[in-house]
């Protein structure tokens, strides 16, 4: 059969250069020099800014292990070009949200990369812990049990684990620690709402994440235990606005 030649997209040199820096050159060692080069770009040019925002969103074009470099670069540019930072974060959160609403398998790789990116954006202080927790809760509650997140689908568990692995270690003090403990209780109950037994890779991923974050935690053995723990939590915090899961209490400046 005739093979069709792949048409290479022709882009202006400036865009090619940006792509080269962001998708090829950028790694742990080069992030400082790449940042300097990025600061020389013509950011006042609206068309360029639009293109840069677009490129910063497509984090699935970057090697998975280099995603944190993109977050680092973005936070380095934030103080000079806040518009870039804000619009990229907006788009990342929309990408995660829309991904849950359309739930297409061919987007899975892209969704994993995006969730990892969000975790790294927390590590580089672009978003605060409220954003992370509301994303975590939406991952386990949005459309749960329906076509969007069927008991036989385990992909959302992967997303939660990737996000927890990316930034969960930093929720180790104060309210964020409590919030994470509470989330892990809900997350374990969510895991039991899936068809049991879990596929081996999902189970390993789940226990690895729990182990990484709370080495001393004893995971629940069955759904009754998980249910009881959630009920105990809900009883304890009923009508309590200082509830650690209540995302209104402002403690942004907490380091």
């Amino acid at each position: 059969p005739e093979t069709q030649k792949l048409q290479r997209k022709i882009r202006p040199p400036l865009q090619e250069y940006l792509r080269h820096l962001l998708y090829k050159e950028l790694n742990v060692r080069s992030v400082e020099t790449v940042l300097k080069k990025f600061r020389c770009f013509p950011w006042q040019d609206n068309e360029f800014m639009e293109y840069a925002i677009k490129s910063f969103i497509r984090v699935w074009c970057v090697k998975f292990n280099n995603i944190h470099c993109v977050a680092s670069l973005l936070s380095g540019l934030y103080m000079y070009y806040p518009t870039l930072g804000v619009k990229v974060v907006d788009a990342v959160l929309e990408e995660i949200r829309l991904g849950m609403e359309i739930a297409l398998r061919e987007h899975n790789q892209r969704r994993v990369a995006t969730v990892k990116y969000l975790g790294e954006l927390y590590n580089y202080r672009m978003v605060d812990s409220k954003v992370i927790f509301s994303t975590l809760y939406s991952l386990i509650f949005f459309g749960a049990g329906t076509r969007l997140d069927h008991p036989r689908h385990f992909f959302r568990m992967k997303l939660v684990c990737v996000l927890l692995d990316a930034c969960g270690q930093f929720f180790d003090r104060g309210n964020d620690r409590k919030r994470l403990d509470i989330f892990l209780t809900y997350f374990q109950r969510y895991a039991f709402s899936k068809e049991q037994p879990l596929p081996l890779d999902t189970e390993i991923m789940l226990f690895d994440s729990l182990e990484l974050l709370r080495p001393k935690l004893k995971p629940f053995d069955n759904v009754e235990e998980a249910d009881a723990a959630v009920q105990a939590l809900e009883h304890e915090y009923r009508g309590d606005s200082a509830h650690p899961t209540s995302l209104d209490s402002s403690d942004e400046s907490e380091d």
């Binding site: 600061r39 020389c40 103080m79 000079y80 806040p82 804000v86 907006d90 959160l93 978003v127 954003v131």
Partner: peptide, 17 residues
Amino acid sequence: VAPFQRWPRTRSRQDKH
């Protein structure tokens, strides 16, 4: 309600690279 509440500031630090 937007999940990320920051707004792009109109005035940012001048970049004198």
